[in-house]
Amino acid sequence: MTKKQRSINQVKEDISVRVLREKLPREWVVHSYGADYGIDCVVELFDFIDEGKKIAETLGENFFVQLKSSDCIEYSSRKAYGRGNVTKGPLVEDKSDYVEIQIAKFQLDMSDILTVQSMGIAIPVLLILVDTNSERAFFICLNDYIDKVLIPEDPLYFGKGSKTIYIPTENEILDEENALVALRAYGKRSKMYGAFSLFSYQLKEIWRIQGRAAAPHIIPLEQAVEMIKTFVDIALRQDIWKGHEFWEPMEWSHGELLELKEKLSRGVKAEDYDQFLIYCSDYIWHRLTNLSNMYEELVREWFMPTYLAMLTSYPPKQESN
């Protein structure tokens, strides 16, 4: 009769879980996801709320994790060529313009890829790869990788048994605030998409009272001002404005909403009504709704193994003397 045994894969899994917990801030919580159906755990973000760092409060922010480990990761480099916007058309690369990206390779089963694709883009799923020899951990957002790298480069990917995922080694998980920017941004993603939908709704309602929509709804000045006040208050209540110091457009729009709130507190004169609505629709809400466009074209490409990502995702290298 044999005794209980452990396979080397089980040992590696235990190492990967331990390494992940050690790399993340101690106040964050890693929730196991039970049986492996493509998601291994959910990371819930917390922040300390006291100076002594003894009490942490949830941020209501999470990201899913596919946790993989290997003791024989292939480290290599990848040429990332300048290219057109793959959100707007097929991949077109400029072979004369490229950057070399240091990467870790991992072969991911197609069933895992298709599972993530079916989840959509609002809740991020991060592939976290742990090198069990060096105990380094690297991340890549699979939702974004599928749309920005995999499909443009291999439109028939779904017919393959697996695909090699290229993870920039710059995407190393470290318990340092600068290195956590990406993970914090992924945790906030579902809130961002909720806010984008809200801003779009608000803009369309402003268009209606301007007579610019298919179903106009012209209302008196006082009622319109109250509606705009309500829109501003609701927009400012969205829990998206903190933690985005790395993305200036968020700060700009937040400041503009606060400025509009101040203007509203002083009242709107009847003779200024039309210009006030134009200011709201063509400036404030135009910029708010444009956040979603920039998010799709720029933010979702951050931390990918692409030319644009290398230019926009990481702090500039310090040149040594």
Rank of each mutant, 00 (worst) to 15 (best):
G194Y: 05
W207V: 02
V225N: 00
I228Q: 06
A182V: 05
S200Q: 09
S197R: 14
S197M: 14
I218P: 00
L236V: 09
M227R: 11
L236S: 03
K204H: 10
E205P: 01
E205M: 10
S200V: 07
K191H: 15
L198Q: 10
S200R: 14
L203G: 05
K229A: 02
A213E: 09
S197T: 14
I219D: 11
M192T: 05
R237H: 13
I219M: 13
E205A: 12
L236Q: 02
E226H: 05
F231D: 01
F196D: 00
R184I: 05
Y201E: 10
D233H: 09
V232P: 00
G211D: 10
T230W: 02
L198P: 00
I219V: 15
S190M: 05
R189W: 09
I228M: 11
E226P: 01
L221W: 02
A214R: 13
K191I: 11
K204T: 11
Y193Q: 15
A195M: 14
Q223D: 10
A213G: 10
K204M: 08
A185Q: 07
E226M: 12
H217A: 11
M192F: 03
A195G: 06
I206K: 02
K204R: 13
H217L: 04
I209Q: 06
M227S: 06
L221D: 04
A179Y: 07
E222R: 09
L221P: 00
A185M: 09
A213D: 15
Q210S: 12
D233A: 12
F231P: 00
R189C: 08
A224H: 00
S190P: 11
R184M: 13
L221E: 08
M192E: 05
E205Q: 11
E222A: 09
Y186G: 01
A215K: 13
I218N: 07
M192K: 02
P216T: 08
S200L: 04
T230H: 10
P216D: 11
I219Y: 06
A179Q: 09
E222L: 07
S190C: 08
V225L: 14
A235T: 14
K188S: 13
T230I: 05
L198E: 01
E226S: 05
G194F: 01
K204W: 06
P216G: 14
A179V: 01
Y193V: 15
L180D: 04
A214S: 12
S200W: 00
A185K: 07
Y201L: 12
I206C: 02
G187Q: 06
F231L: 09
Q202I: 06
G187V: 10
I206M: 04
M192L: 10
L203E: 14
P216F: 08
F196K: 02
R237T: 10
V232L: 08
N178V: 11
M192H: 04
S197P: 04
G211H: 09
D233L: 09
I218D: 05
G194E: 10
L236Y: 09
